[in-house]
Design a protein around this nucleic acid. Structure first.
Lengths: 235, 235
DNA sequence: GATAACTTGCACAACACTGTGCAAGTTATC
DNA sequence: GATAACTTGCACAGTGTTGTGCAAGTTATC
């Protein structure tokens, strides 16, 4: 027996599973509709609304945890890019972000919510810094377009990646291709130059590989059996 | 004296102004937040919530009228493009859409609302058809990228224009430049090719000129006191 | 098997919003 | 100046949401 004073049992296994299930459900529900109600999320997780409040203080706490999850993964992506050639770095970044499509979608949806603007901004800050750095070095090396100031071009790259990942298909294998080529295009390359670059670096568009992502925090969207409800109708 | 039977006075001038004021206010309010309350819109127009319901049956009717306004202007834009060179056509289209930035923003915001998805889709249909046509001809003439299927490329062009116009600045004069160059980039041109093209056609980036758009109907957000009768003189 | 942890269902207060009715004012138009 | 049009402010019912309290039931863990 453990100490009689702090004789707190550890959380039940099913409770932990339910908590993860709620996060997974929120992942799906909020990506589809950032104002999804607590009831809708709980129901999708196969729980009652009341039970959800046993795991999260309030709706905000739930959302904040999703943002934190995404932030961790995006930071891992940012850290994983270290190519000398800015064009290759951008291509690899786009491909890596496509791997995190589910998180990109959730974060983008949550970011629409005014209320969580600051939160998402700080969560994405490291990734943004990485893009600015890549763009800046790329311009100095004359590898990227120089008709647009670095901060603007960085923003453009970011928005392009977000747009393609969240608004186009996203499930088809061709989408990864599209995301990468779009980012290279917006960075200033002609489509033939982009094709040549990708031919020179076939590993960029190779299979998704193992997620070189963050420690802990399993991807909510990936735990399939935890999400019992609907089959994620990607339109 | 008019006929004593249908002795209906015509609407008072101030009432018409108030109606236009409401539309202008909705333009601003909804572009900022697509779920802005009726009260917020009425207040911004300097009227009471109750008065607004004297001009529009319900919130939906108001939104629908905004969509119709935007649709009319976008259709005018689509009709105004008739360049043989697809690259020039796309550049001109982007520039023209930038002129309608206020409407693009409102439509994009409303389109987020699930409820009005169909409405905005049909409102934009003619513009979409024009883009598909331009892209298709451009690919056949080998002027645009051919590594992406026409419908997808058209979508990409549309999303790029929307993204740049709604998410970047939008007020600075440089934004127009950015919108045009971004569309050309996503269409497959290198940034230098785009620059050369724009140098060859300086009129594209020339001053906004007179709105070659639909006659009558000033931009709601721009001329609150004007905008007389019906929403849009669709010829 | 005892116990604490967990879930459920219900009820409840609070809030924000929509759309309507009505009486009382104000104002453009005849 | 008479009149209809318009606006206002209030009250009201209805809806959908959030977050909490509590009693009763189920279940993993000790």
């Amino acid at each position: 027996m453990t100490s009689p004073i702090d004789a707190a049992r550890r959380p039940r296994r099913d409770a932990l599973e339910n908590r993860a299930g709620i996060l997974a459900a929120a992942h799906v529900a909020l990506a589809h509709d950032p104002r999804a109600s607590v009831d809708a999320i709980a129901r999708q997780a196969g729980l009652s609304r009341r039970a959800l409040y046993g795991h999260f203080d309030d709706r905000d706490a739930l959302v904040r945890e999703l943002v934190a999850q995404g932030a961790a993964r995006f930071n891992a992506v940012a850290r994983s890019i270290d190519d000398d050639d800015a064009r290759v770095a951008l291509a690899r970044l786009a491909a890596a972000l496509w791997n995190e499509a589910a998180h990109v979608q959730v974060l983008a949806a949550i970011a629409l919510d005014e209320a969580h603007l600051d939160e998402t901004a700080t969560a994405l800050a490291p990734l943004r810094r990485a893009v600015v750095r890549i763009v800046r070095e790329g311009q100095q090396a004359d590898a990227l377009r120089t008709d647009v100031a670095a901060p603007t071009l960085a923003r453009l790259v970011e928005e392009t990646a977000r747009t393609v990942i969240t608004r186009i298909d996203a499930s088809s294998p061709a989408a990864r291709d599209l995301a990468v080529r779009s980012v290279l295009s917006i960075a200033g390359l002609s489509w033939r130059e982009a094709a040549a670059l990708l031919a020179d670096h076939p590993e960029i568009l190779a299979a998704p590989t193992a997620p070189a992502a963050a420690e802990g925090a399993p991807t909510a969207a990936e735990a399939p059996e935890a999400a019992p409800g609907t089959p994620e109708a990607t339109e």
